[in-house]
Simulated scan of single mutants.
Amino acid sequence: MKDLKVVFMGTPDFSVNVLHHLIAQTNVIGVVTKPDKLVGRKQVLTQSPVKKVALENGIQVIQPIKIREEYQNILDLNPDVIITCAYGQFLPKEILDYPKYGCINVHASLLPKLRGGAPIHKAIIYGYPTTGITIMYMGQKMDNGDIISQKSIAIEETDNVGTLHDKLSILGADLLMETLPAIISGQSNQIVQNEEEVTFAYNISREEEHIDFNKTKIEVFNQIRGLNPWPVANTILDEEEIKIYEAVIGEDLYAEQANGEIVKLYKDGIGVKVSDGEIILKTIKPAGKKKMSAKDYVNGWKEKNNLIGKVFR
């Protein structure tokens, strides 16, 4: 496939494995990614991970602010196929209709489940036992194109969004390279998505980051690991925001306590009442401080017992 002219569109770390595979096995003639952005407190102008890889390999980079209005220079590259992976903008019909092999997307869910920008987070938050990768033709609506191939992966209880992200990034690159020859030869099978089975995984909102201790143990557990290591679940204690990175499921006790109440201090955790028992917070980050173990946080209190009965909200 070394003579296959590819334009690749992607932005975050998740896209990098796909780009590396394409560079190794095809002729990547251009990379389209989001514009550089200001990052952090010092507002440092930062390139996307995909742009860095493209420049390291001497590949032309195009960074339209609005691709629906700025696409002619992409068409001028005359690609045989356009491949996208977490690019972040909807493509206009002029691009979708241009390449002879179409516009192919690598999506991190088993479509039609979890269309949208946060399928890895939401697969964990919603408690899915499995997720996977879908290779699909792009349509004019969000992730609604025909399915070409899929491969599933189990979501382990030890997974968080970071570990699952890395697994799916590898799986996505491998499945794309397995699928491309059939696309090029015209032997790929297209499956129209069943609209009755569609679910959505919109980008995480600020409200979704906040823990609702009125939920069940498994719901709170899945929320915490589904937001770790980014953007991270949070709660409030004594008017201070605390980020929660890790937790484990606790006992089916404490029926009389209020949801969100600290009910027990363990050697390595803080037991908090939820609707059907207890969730044990293990790794946290108080505002203005470094990430720490719950043990270190508790040891920082002069009177540890004063924590018992306090309520997260």
Rank of each mutant, 00 (worst) to 15 (best):
D3S: 06
K5E: 04
K5H: 03
V7R: 01
L19N: 09
H20F: 11
H21P: 00
A24D: 15
T26L: 04
T26C: 14
T26P: 01
P35K: 11
K37P: 00
L38V: 06
G40S: 10
K42N: 13
S48Q: 04
K52N: 06
Q63A: 13
I65R: 11
R68D: 12
E69W: 13
Q72H: 13
I74G: 05
P79A: 04
V81Y: 02
C85Q: 08
P92T: 13
K93G: 00
D97K: 15
P99I: 12
Y101M: 09
Y101C: 09
G102E: 04
C103D: 07
V106C: 03
S109D: 09
P119E: 01
K122T: 06
A123H: 05
A123V: 02
I124M: 11
I125Y: 02
Y128S: 15
G132Y: 05
I133W: 11
K141T: 14
D146V: 08
D146E: 14
S149F: 00
S152M: 10
S152H: 09
N160H: 14
D166I: 10
L168Q: 02
D174P: 00
D174F: 05
M177T: 01
I183Q: 03
Q187M: 10
V192R: 08
E196I: 02
K215E: 15
L227M: 08
V232R: 05
L237Q: 07
E240K: 10
E240P: 00
A247G: 13
V248S: 14
Y254E: 03
Q257T: 03
Q257V: 01
G269R: 11
I270Q: 04
G271C: 07
K273Q: 12
E278F: 09
I280C: 08
I280V: 15
K282S: 13
T283E: 14
K289P: 02
K291S: 10
S293W: 09
K295E: 15
K295D: 08
K295Y: 05
W301K: 13
K310D: 07
